[in-house]
C-alpha cells in the first residue's frame, strides 16, 4: 500500500494551528490600525468649490481666524464666512480671478457657496465652540496647524477618546486669555515653560475660572 500521508503530515495540525494564530494576529493588528477614525477620518481633504488657502490667508497674511469664523466666540457653531466677508478684500484684490467666480456669484445672487464640511461630530454629540474658545482652548487643539495647510485636512481623530483625553486633563491645553500672546487663534503658541509650565498655568486657570469639563455621558450625549 502506498503512503497516503507522508511523514511530514504528522506536523500539519500543529502548523495549521500556528498559522491560524498568526492570521488572527494580523487580523487584530489590522483592525486596531484601520478600524478607527485615526485612519478613517484623519487626512480627509475634500475638493472645495474655491481653492481657498488657509496657509496664505491665516499663515502668510496673519489674518485672525475670527475675521471669517466670526461667531465662534458667541455661537456653538463656528460659522463659515458670508460671501461678503470674502468680498471685503476680493472686491479689489484679484477681483477678476476665475477661481473666485463662485464667491462673486454668491455675493450678487445670495446663492450658497457649496463648501464641503470636513470636521464632523456625530449628530448624537453636543459640541459647542464658544464654550471651548472662551475658556482658553485653542483652535489648534482640535484642528491642528490650519495656518500651514494649503488645503485643509482633518488633523485630529475627534473620537470620544480624543475628547475625553482633554476633558480629563484640561490643564495641558488651557490658555490664559488675559495674555494677548496666548490668544486662542495663535496656532503656533506653546507655553514657554514647556509641559510643566503649561500644566501649572492650567491648574491655576481651572481654579480661577472654575473650569469643570464634563466627563459623564450626559455632558455631551444630551
Amino acid at each position: 500500500m502506498s503512503k497516503l500521508f507522508p511523514k511530514s503530515a504528522n506536523r500539519l495540525p500543529l502548523q495549521i494551528l500556528l498559522y491560524l494564530f498568526v492570521l488572527g494576529g494580523i487580523a487584530m493588528a489590522g483592525i486596531n490600525y484601520y478600524a478607527t477614525n485615526k485612519w478613517a477620518n484623519v487626512g480627509y481633504a475634500p475638493v472645495q468649490p474655491v481653492p481657498y488657502s488657509h496657509k496664505l490667508h491665516a499663515g502668510q497674511l496673519g489674518i485672525d481666524c475670527r475675521y471669517c469664523h466670526s461667531n465662534v466666540e458667541k455661537s456653538g457653531f463656528a460659522n463659515l464666512p458670508t460671501a461678503q466677508t470674502c468680498m471685503n478684500c476680493h472686491s479689489q484684490v484679484k477681483a477678476d480671478s476665475p477661481l473666485l467666480a463662485v464667491v462673486r456669484q454668491s455675493y450678487e445672487t445670495g446663492a450658497a457657496v457649496p463648501w464641503v464640511q470636513i470636521h464632523m461630530t456625530p449628530d448624537y454629540v453636543y459640541f459647542n465652540h464658544s464654550v471651548h474658545v472662551t475658556r482658553g482652548i485653542s483652535c489648534v487643539d482640535c484642528h491642528g496647524r490650519i495656518d500651514q495647510m494649503e488645503i485643509v485636512a482633518q488633523d485630529k481623530s475627534l473620537t470620544m477618546g480624543f475628547c475625553l483625553e482633554c476633558h480629563r486633563a484640561p490643564e495641558e491645553h488651557l490658555r490664559d486669555l488675559r495674555d494677548p500672546a496666548q490668544t486662542v487663534t495663535r496656532l503656533d503658541w506653546i507655553h514657554p515653560g514647556g509641559e510643566k509650565g503649561q500644566a501649572d498655568q492650567g491648574v491655576k486657570l481651572i481654579q480661577a475660572n472654575k473650569i469643570a469639563p464634563p466627563t459623564s455621558c450626559s455632558g455631551c450625549h444630551r
Binding site: 490600525y33 480627509y44 475634500p46 485636512a153
Partner: peptide, 11 residues
C-alpha cells in the same frame, strides 16, 4: 497609512 490625504468622503 494613518494620516494620508484623501478626497473621497470618509469610510
Amino acid at each position: 497609512f494613518r494620516g494620508d490625504r484623501f478626497k473621497h468622503p470618509p469610510l
